[in-house]
Design a protein around this nucleic acid. Structure first.
Lengths: 234, 234, 234, 234
DNA sequence: GATGAATGAGATTTCATTCAT
DNA sequence: GATGAATGAAATCTCATTCAT
């Protein structure tokens, strides 16, 4: 625990700097890719020297992994919360689609990094990131499986559909911008309906209120993504 | 026209070399990304010196653009052929899905480059590549629009659905490998059915023969991707 | 003089920290060389931050010089004590070899730094260290000269032999480890005999008791190297 | 085989450049140590850009290993030639001392690198260099062993003496300069006599003609060190 | 007195590319 | 036409050191 006013200040400054670096990195990695982003470019964007960047964040690879881990943990937390409160597979899929779409629409850079830069990680970090991603996708896997077992869904190969749906929903990160003709809730609802349709759920399920009602997912995503950065330099 | 036996030979040698480079580039760009692939690594993989690589292919950027152009032209040609022979929007969408899925499953490296490396191109080439991609997607746009106008499809925002479907179908490139539990025709058919479902097409359309019959798309894709490399050094 | 209990404590803590740094530095400089050792690596090995290292020890160069000075002073003190108590050149050379060999065997890291890192010192410190080394070697120079003048030794060029002997004896630091087939006293005696032989001393001198009796040199080396670190931050 | 005049020229230019780099590296590594020498400093000294330096020589570590290998092979070749033509252990030791001393006096930089920078090599290269050094020292080992077995030498521990002699003779590299009071042949002879004395060889052996006659070692060393650089970039 | 924060300068190495032949 | 030679610019990362508290 910081013991003096000035130690608190130093800690706060540190967090400010770390946040600036983090944001610059997320933005640049999303826009130009990990290998397309230079460390100096990154430092410039964050207003630091490249040496300071290392002081705060460790290597470029560490930074990338930090971003991936942070984002995947958030996606996982949201999926967990959705799964806990929805017993019924149709409703669960709708909820998962909602939080996935909202996360990708509201945090397109973070999710773009997660979705595109796995291969840029070093072997150790890659293994860890893949594990996190798999544990996220497990919520989807279970939801699809439950729905198929119940007879609600009809999927040729379950993992084919799962991947298809995930990619379909991830695409939102690539084009969504606030102020478009469709509101974000409508977009999320539309994807939920498409997902259920693709899963072969009956029309009445596609029209169920839980497909349209995005409010809970909204609150969940807002809450989960609002937390601070993880502590630095593992 | 080559005038002597040895000029023919030289031309053939040239094509052999160009093809080796091209294949190495497609493979490496797909696996490690454009920025993650070095020019020397590429030359090594192709069994050439980096100077020869420039001789045959021009700059790294030229090479990437060549690959994108080539692949996008093929996708475009396939979509055009499908669109010409199918008046009915449901059948047309099914055909477009078929060729898209088959192309992505059979040429995962080429399509991965197309799907992921647009941003790595220089401004000129990027503009040209975006135009090609847009002209490919136009076939999808028109199919969706026709289906919606006819009342066959029901899409909240047409381009939202179009993008969702394209991404969903592109995902196949990431996981398909021959010899899996599902045959490639089944995969293509499943995606066509999911696409039509997502578009809100009625169940009987989702079950129509043109959804399941992939044979025509097969022939088309095989024919179109079998042609030689485009002439070198734009 | 410290005035309170806690000032004494602080002073003791300081000495503990300084000793930890010193030992780490000696070990690392010996193992990897001055330029091969990073300041952070050194701080880590000592369990301090690099800033604290500066606080206690000054710059890297200061630290190196401190180690050299300290070790050279000890070698010099031992040589002085030997020279004072032995009038006869044969006995004096035997004594000098004994303390040199024992010092190098028992303190291989300190002596390795002395023997290998002179060139790494900055110009000022280097001058001072060279002076200390020369004053140590002066004891050898005088012993050789006395023996030659007496007619006991026969050396073509006196300094050629002196350097040859010094290097020969220094080599022990590179390989001696307790528990080998030869005891340390035997090693010291063997080197004394070799030195006298190389100097052309008659066989009966090579077999004299002062060649074999290492006990006095033992006590001397133990006594001299047992003293505390010199006061910090020159 | 180069096919044209200009290809020959290019090859020659290349050798000129490689030789310049090599010489600069030997000089700098000897003077300041491997870690004390920067790659840019090295490139400057050779009149090249640092990128060209890599083109010619590979990494700094490669360069160091190249120098060590080259020098150790030469020392080994000389020791082999000496060992082949001298059956008698006293004469053999004298010959080994001669070539060792001459090599160290005439090529003080090369031998300094060999003697001081082993630890700076990466693990792979270090292993290889240690093997080469051991194979050189084997000639010494066998000579000492033969002399002891014959009863000509008397050594407490054979390897103790071997190392002592090697170090004694290596010291010459540190101070010899042409034009001093002693000629190089006298220096070599003096060391041979000291070595035999240290080995406990009888006085008449220490005075044998083969101790004083350095001419053969001269020719050997001159011949062996006159050959070209090894081919570049392993 | 003691130390976490911070950095300018520099380390080694690789980059994509051009040039002379 | 084809390629070994060559390099300026930039890559990522570490260096020894200082400073504010």
């Amino acid at each position: 625990m910081p013991r003096s006013r000035s130690e608190q200040q130093a800690g706060a400054d540190r967090e400010v700097a770390r946040t600036r670096v983090w944001r610059a990195a997320v933005e640049l990695f999303a826009a130009k890719g990990f290998h397309g982003t230079g460390i100096r470019e990154l430092a410039d964007a964050a207003g630091l020297s490249s040496a300071s960047l290392y002081h705060y964040m460790g290597s470029k690879d560490d930074l990338l992994f930090g971003i991936m881990r942070h984002s995947l943990l958030r996606l996982g937390a949201a999926a967990q919360r959705v799964s806990e409160r929805t017993a019924e597979p149709g409703e669960r899929i709708a909820g998962l689609v909602h939080v996935h779409v909202l996360s990708h629409a509201l945090y397109p850079d973070e999710t773009a990094v997660v979705d595109h830069e796995l291969r840029a990680l070093g072997p150790e970090h890659r293994k860890a990131a893949v594990a996190l991603r798999d544990s996220y996708e497990d919520y989807w896997r279970r939801a699809v499986a439950d729905g198929c077992d119940t007879g609600l869904f009809h999927a040729p190969e379950r993992s084919v559909v799962r991947i298809a749906l995930l990619e379909m929903c991830s695409a939102v990160a690539g084009w969504y911008a606030p102020g478009g003709p469709l509101g974000l809730d409508e977009i999320a609802a539309a994807h939920a309906r498409m997902a259920l349709a693709a899963l072969g759920a009956p029309p009445e399920v596609q029209r169920a209120p839980f497909v349209t009602d995005v409010s809970h997912a909204r609150r969940l995503v807002e809450e989960i993504w609002q937390v601070a950065l993880p502590p630095g330099r593992a």
